[in-house]
C-alpha cells in the first residue's frame, strides 16, 4: 500500500506557478529521491507534502487521509517530519534542547532516550557540543542537528531537503549511511538532493523534476545509468 500519494498537485506562489501537475506515490519503507535543477520545484513539493503550502489543485494523501483535513501541527505526531533546507534550528536553544524539542509530542521516555543515543552515535560531533547554543554551531553542524532533531520525533515518513548541503565529504558518506540505517527501521524517506549521484545510489526510485513537472522517472539503478541524467546532473 502506498503510504504517501501525491495526485496531480498544482502549487502557486501568488500568480507564479511552481508545480504543474505532479503525481507519484511512495511505498512503505522506500527511499524515493527527487532530483533536478534549482527552481525545478523539489522543495516546493516537499513543502506541499508537509502542509506548509496548500496546493491549489490536486491532493496529497498521507496514510490514506486527505492532507487538507489535517492541521500542520498534527502532522508530526502522525509521523510526517520534514528536515527543512537551510537548517531551521532553534538557534537560541542548546543542542540538547533542540534534540528534546524534536521529541516534543512524544510521551515514552525510554524510547526517547534510545533515539537520543542513536542520534548521538550517528553524529558524534553533536555529543561534543550538547550544551552549546545551537546558533553558534558551524553550518555543517547545524545541518547534523536538524537531521538529529527530526529523528527524535520518531518519523514514519521523513522528508529530507538537501541533507548533504554544507557537509564535508566524509560526513556526506556518514549521513547517507545513516539514512539507509533509518530506512532499515521501517521509516519511509523522501529525499531531495543536489548530489544526485549519491542520492540515486541509495534510493529505490527516482523522479527528475524540470520546471514544475516530472520529466523522467524510474528505478534509481536505471536512472543512474541514463545518459541524459549523467550529463545534466551527475557532472
Amino acid at each position: 500500500m502506498a503510504i504517501l500519494e501525491i495526485n496531480d498537485i498544482h502549487v502557486y506562489y501568488g500568480n507564479i506557478r511552481a508545480l504543474h501537475g505532479i503525481s507519484f506515490s511512495v511505498e512503505k519503507g522506500q527511499i524515493v529521491t527527487l532530483i533536478g535543477a534549482n527552481g525545478a520545484g523539489k522543495t516546493t513539493t516537499l513543502n506541499a507534502i508537509s502542509g506548509i503550502l496548500a496546493p491549489r489543485q490536486g491532493s496529497v494523501r498521507v496514510f490514506d487521509q486527505d492532507l487538507a483535513r489535517i492541521m500542520p501541527h498534527e502532522l508530526v505526531p502522525q509521523g510526517v517530519v520534514q528536515v527543512p533546507e537551510g537548517r531551521r534550528i532553534f538557534s537560541r536553544l542548546t543542542v540538547d534542547e533542540n534534540l528534546s524539542m524534536g521529541a516534543f509530542t512524544r510521551k515514552d521516555k525510554v524510547a526517547i532516550a534510545k533515539d537520543r543515543e542513536r542520534v548521538l552515535e550517528m553524529f558524534p560531533r553533536l555529543r561534543e557540543r550538547l550544551t552549546q547554543i545551537a546558533g553558534t554551531l558551524s553550518g555543517g553542524e547545524q545541518q547534523m542537528l536538524a537531521m538529529g532533531r527530526a529523528i527524535m520525533s520518531d518519523p514514519k515518513i521523513l522528508l529530507l531537503d538537501e541533507p548533504s548541503m554544507g557537509l564535508a565529504p566524509i560526513l556526506v558518506d556518514q549521513v547517507f549511511e545513516s539514512i539507509q540505517d533509518i530506512r532499515k527501521q521501517g521509516v519511509t524517506i523522501l529525499l531531495v538532493e543536489q548530489n544526485a549521484y549519491v542520492a540515486l545510489q541509495i534510493a529505490d526510485y527516482g523522479y527528475v523534476l524540470e520546471s514544475g513537472q516530472i520529466a523522467l522517472k524510474g528505478p534509481a539503478k536505471e536512472l543512474i545509468k541514463n545518459e541524459e541524467i549523467r550529463k545534466a546532473y551527475l557532472g
Binding site: G36, N38, M165, G166, Q194, A232, Y233
Partner: peptide, 13 residues
C-alpha cells in the same frame, strides 16, 4: 564561503 552549496554538479561547473 561555499559558493556552490546547494547546486548540482552542472550548476557548480
Amino acid at each position: 564561503d561555499e559558493p556552490t552549496a546547494g547546486m548540482n554538479p552542472s550548476e557548480s561547473q
